[in-house]
């Protein structure tokens, strides 16, 4: 604790009597400690400036209205006001959460409209186009079954009736179609994911 020639209590008393320069001395004396305390809680220079300012506005109002009765404990009193204003600041923040893009967290990663964005739509279109081209490379009988099953949503019974083969043969062609597609995809390192 520093020893000052004029104590805080005297400066406060002089200020209450109308000596404005006493307030300047009190601020000069304690500004670093009060400001550092506020900054250590909020970690934001602008918010710290605001809270520091509001703290002294409260101090001034209390002193000028004659409600101050803590003689000799000026700094702890101011620190308590600052502390309460810091709490108010965080309460206000909880009521009205700010969503800032600071690289760490984005609210839009949690809340989305469920639709694909433009980039994902583009990728989806490309994947589907690539797959169509791969299907064209399949042997005709396998391609026919796969297209009927996957694109026309036909059952294997319907496919067997339409193609004139047994259900088992249709199932086998479908199986080989998928195996062959996988082989081509692996061989050419094709990425078909969104």
């Amino acid at each position: 604790m520093k020893n000052y020639t004029v104590s805080d209590a005297i400066l406060v008393s002089n200020y209450i009597k109308g000596d404005e320069s006493s307030l300047g001395m009190l601020i000069e004396r304690h500004k670093q400690r009060i400001y550092s305390f506020i900054y250590s809680k909020v970690f934001d220079r602008d918010v710290s400036e605001d809270i520091f300012q509001d703290t002294f506005i409260k101090v001034i109002k209390t002193l000028k209205s004659g409600k101050y009765n803590e003689e000799g404990k000026f700094l702890p009193w101011v620190m308590r006001i600052a502390h309460n204003l810091v709490i108010d600041h965080f309460r206000k923040g909880n009521r009205m959460p700010k969503f800032e893009e600071n690289g760490e967290f984005s609210i839009f990663s949690v809340i989305s409209d469920g639709d694909l964005n433009a980039e994902k739509k583009l990728i989806k279109g490309q994947v589907e186009e690539d797959l169509r081209m791969l299907i064209q490379e399949l042997p005709e009988d396998q391609k026919e079954v796969l297209v009927m099953r996957m694109y026309r949503d036909m059952s294997f019974k319907e496919i067997s009736e339409k193609t004139g083969v047994s259900i088992n043969t249709a199932l086998g062609r479908m199986r080989y179609a998928l195996i062959n597609l996988r082989k081509v995809i692996e061989k050419n390192n094709i990425v078909l994911t969104n």
Partner: peptide
């Protein structure tokens, strides 16, 4: 770096004090 308020903030407080009459 010493953490302390801007001069403009302190000036504002001092001016506010001078302007306030109860």
């Amino acid at each position: 770096t010493k953490l302390e308020p801007k001069k403009s903030t302190v000036d504002f407080i001092l001016n506010y004090s001078k302007a306030l009459k109860v």
